[in-house]
């Protein structure tokens, strides 16, 4: 089954890919109007014309985890367009759980290693791979730490002491006005989100936006004191990665985030500068609980799009697809 074909089909069915599906004139006009209105309303028309350059808005690469991650970033212009020499880089994979690679609950170590390698090639000043793990860190970060060892013995950390966090205001927060965030993240020049693609019982999916909760000290407060989806978007206004690489080499399509659930071995890596678009594309690209669902069914993606954090109209975005064999 070619998942990408299914995405195309879904996009086509929704009339967003231009010319593929037959539409009545009235329907066509209505949709054009809606699109224009939504763009005007949300102020989302991109300032940089990605279409003019050869850099796509989204890159989708199928292949082995490491090479696919590398190619996905190369398609966006290479790591050099994100990381400059001497900069402090924080990479945020999902390493919150202690499952193995086949459980699909954590980011593939080879994807993380490839990204660390690319940052290292760009002569980043300091590279850190950080997460606030749900399980005891020593049981969670081992595989990724081993994978990254060639680039320094001390770059992967599960920070479970409050000493490593600092209160930060969220000026654009609607519900969540502040949070204790990892100092290293607040001080970093570049933040790269590398989530694994998985379902989530309370937020539908856990991708790059939900993953930012792994950079704060007290995340349960977002579950009960605040509106979870709204506060995820609040947090993402503060913690907005410059590059998102979604590891869909394995997709935990049911019983996320902790599993055990149905794992789709999709061998896919999705990258974008826009966290909302990357998440939205991933939602649309895979079946969740055996069902095809459009991105707007995920409330935090919907809210983020409405608040102008990024785009979820993936049908309108330029997607560059490559298959490595």
């Amino acid at each position: 089954m070619d998942i990408l074909d299914l995405v195309m089909k879904w996009c086509a069915e929704n009339g967003r890919m231009g010319g593929v599906a037959w539409l009545s004139r009235r329907e066509f006009m209505r949709r054009q109007g809606l699109l224009a209105a939504s763009l005007a309303f949300s102020g989302l028309a991109p300032k940089v014309s990605w279409a003019a350059s050869d850099r796509p808005y989204l890159s989708v690469v199928t292949g082995a985890p490491g090479p696919a991650a590398r190619m996905a970033i190369e398609l966006l212009g290479g790591m050099g367009s994100f990381v400059k020499r001497g900069q402090k880089v924080v990479i945020k994979p999902n390493m919150s759980f202690s499952g193995g690679v086949r459980d699909g609950v954590t980011t593939h170590p080879e994807v993380v290693r490839e990204i660390v390698a690319m940052c290292s090639e760009c002569r980043a000043g300091r590279i850190l791979v950080l997460d606030h793990t749900l399980r005891p860190p020593e049981r969670c970060i081992g595989e990724i730490r081993n994978a990254c060892r060639p680039f320094g013995g001390d770059i992967v950390h599960g920070l479970d002491s409050r000493d490593f966090y600092r209160q930060a205001a969220i000026p654009q927060g609607v519900d969540l006005k502040g949070a204790e965030v990892m100092k290293d993240v607040l001080d970093a020049d570049v933040l790269i989100a590398v989530p694994v693609a998985k379902s989530h019982s309370s937020t539908g999916v856990s991708l790059s936006m939900k993953g930012m909760m792994g950079l704060v000290w007290n995340r349960t407060v977002m579950h009960w004191r605040h509106d979870l989806d709204e506060s995820i978007v609040d947090l993402c206004t503060l913690l907005k990665p410059s590059l998102v690489v979604i590891d869909a080499t394995r997709v935990l399509s049911t019983n996320g985030p902790s599993g055990p659930g149905e794992v789709i071995f999709a061998d896919t890596v999705i990258a974008s500068r826009d966290m909302v678009a990357a998440d939205a594309y991933t939602v649309a690209a895979f079946p969740w609980y055996g069902r095809r669902l459009p991105p707007e069914k995920v409330r935090h993606v919907r809210i983020a799009s409405a608040r102008g954090l990024g785009r979820m109209d993936v049908g309108n975005l330029e997607v560059k697809k490559v298959t490595l064999r």
Binding site: S199, H200, S201, S202, T203, G204, V205, T254, N255, G259, P260, G261, E262, W288, Y289, G290, R291, L293, K297, V298, R299
Partner: peptide
């Protein structure tokens, strides 16, 4: 074994309304 999943909510069976029906998987919303 893995928890059983029948396209329903959190792997619970016996709810005919679920697959392809109105109810969305856990966490999704309209």
């Amino acid at each position: 074994a893995e928890k059983k999943v029948d396209g329903g909510i959190g792997g619970q069976g016996g709810d005919e309304a679920l697959p392809g029906g109105k109810l969305l998987p856990p966490g999704f919303s309209d």
